[in-house]
Amino acid sequence: MSNVTKGDVLLEAKGLTRHFVVRGDSGLFAKKRTVRAVDDVNLSLRAGHVLAVVGESGSGKSVLARMLSRITAPTGGSLVLNGQEVDLKAPRDKAYASQVQLVLQDPFAAINPVHRIMHCIERALLLHGTTKGDVLAKAHEVLESVSLTPPQQYLDRFPHELSGGQLQRINIARGLSVNPRILLADEPISMLDVSVRLGVLNLLRELCDNRNLAMMYITHDIASARYIADETVVMYAGQIVERARDASIIDAPVHPYTQLLVNSVPDPENLESRHEATAKVGGSTGFNYEGCRFSPRCPDAMDICHSNQPPVTEVAEGHLSRCWLQATSEQRAAVSITAKPIA
């Protein structure tokens, strides 16, 4: 467990995919259709690094996190934990569960309201092999690590006696109590009061640095991703459409969807251009599974966008985009053989 160095890949997703078959929208005999919630996602979670996953509602962020924690089974692709391929047919074992911890959005729903905080921390500790005699000391230790001091005061309380920010710290403390190496935080601050959000975000960053945790931070708030992340991926309709290191995805986005996202964020530093910027965005929200999934909404869409899936292109070191605008001439040539000529 101990000798991890910053930057080591701890968990890897290769071509991770989850499709759901659902009944159609209308009518009793509506045809079944497939929701491609997550499609062919590749990513690595590294020790001491925060990977932010940004995307609109329904883009597949939570399904991705649930697959990584093995609560939801993938319909395709594989997982590699500490260099070992995970047997996805076998049920999730305790060792996996304690190494990969998921922290959810709503701390009020995540913690049983009828028991004192001690009960919830104790259960997690015992379940993952802490002996009875060590429980209290260990409980104090994890509460201190999330800055809830003096710990006993919090352990004795009921959930409704804590604020949202405090409860989310408890929720994180519970996740930490089993000594995980990977923390998946699914919108951990979006339900909290705005003035306490940064406190929780700073805590996550600290934990990642001090314990060499590999962290995935899921959010729809791109500014908070810029604040905390070493690398950011943007998801659209189940696919990663752009990825880059540090802040470059916000400072220099290349994919039209990321550009739209960044330009939509309220920005008092740049008041003039705001109201014109989005005037051209179409109202269509449908996805195109033939070509680029963003093409029905894309202000820059070309003919090829509607007919062929865009390839992934590296536009700078570590900066990838899934868009025909950035495709190389070889990538374009490869499709023009099989598809309609590019207009």
Partner: peptide, 24 residues
């Protein structure tokens, strides 16, 4: 001021911000 410092900015150097200590 505290409320403004609770929102990470879109531009500029990345630096540690604190939000507001304590609870609402």
């Amino acid at each position: 001021l505290g409320l403004m410092n609770s929102f990470p900015p879109l531009h500029g150097q990345r630096e540690v911000m604190t939000g507001i200590p304590g609870s609402p």
